[in-house]
Amino acid sequence: MLHAAKPTPFSAARIQETVREILAAGTLPPIVQAGHPVLRQRAALYDGQLETVELDALIALMRAVMHDAPGVGLAAPQLGISLQLAVLEDQYDVDAETSAVRSRSPLEFFAILNPSYAPLGTATAEFYEGCLSLSGLQAVVSRHESVRLDFTDPHGTARQREFSGWQARIVQHETDHLHGILYIDRAELRSLSNNAEYAARWAHPDIGLARQELGFLPDKPQTS
């Protein structure tokens, strides 16, 4: 059972000050790592704490940090900003087998404010997943196969979109960040691997071999 995160103590003034300091630095900021309290807080809802030009600049900076990492998503708390804002984009080339098994297709760049998701149906999918705030580690996470995402876009318009496959995984991962949830909270911890072991042993389109060898997600017993 997941622990409910406490609301961030960040005031609107502190959020604005933090953003302005990061933008004024003129360099790509470091990505906050697990153990920092900002990753375990429920981020503040965006309600106009930033000027439009500041919000646009922050989104552009977050996209640059995401590309530099590289990753397919980045949430504002990962830069030390406790605000419900995330950017998402998946343009990585993967082989045809992996793409098919993982239902992975390109995701065009977009930014989300104040997101929440709900499952569409009961189907789940289990794959290895990593996080830029847990550098060097990956673990298997069960996620909803399809979700509906409700969010506000940077122009202030309420949106609703549906996602499935790997896109749904990215959406869930980034939205979780804004509620103080890291993927390890949902992970099969027996699957936890560092990147070198993952690359050497478990970097297959599915998790079958890792599941067998590491002893997680065992087969359900047959019932008569």
Rank of each mutant, 00 (worst) to 15 (best):
S103C: 14
S103H: 15
P106W: 14
F109C: 09
N114D: 13
S116H: 13
Y117C: 00
A118I: 04
A123G: 07
A125Y: 01
A125S: 13
A125K: 04
E126S: 13
E126W: 00
F127Y: 13
F127S: 01
Y128Q: 06
E129K: 03
E129A: 03
E129P: 02
E129L: 03
G130S: 07
G130F: 05
S133P: 02
Q138I: 07
V141Y: 01
S142E: 14
S142K: 11
S142F: 00
S146D: 03
S146P: 00
D150L: 15
D150P: 00
F151N: 00
F151A: 04
T152D: 10
T152F: 06
T152E: 11
P154N: 02
G156F: 03
T157V: 14
R159V: 04
R159L: 11
Q160R: 15
G165P: 04
G165A: 07
G165D: 09
R169C: 10
Q172I: 09
Q172T: 08
D176N: 15
D176G: 04
H179V: 03
I181V: 15
L182V: 10
Y183K: 00
I184V: 12
D185Y: 10
D185G: 09
R186W: 06
R186D: 08
L189E: 11
N194F: 04
N195D: 08
A196V: 06
Y198Q: 03
A200N: 14
R201D: 11
A203G: 00
P205S: 05
G208W: 07
G208K: 15
A210F: 10
A210T: 02
R211K: 13
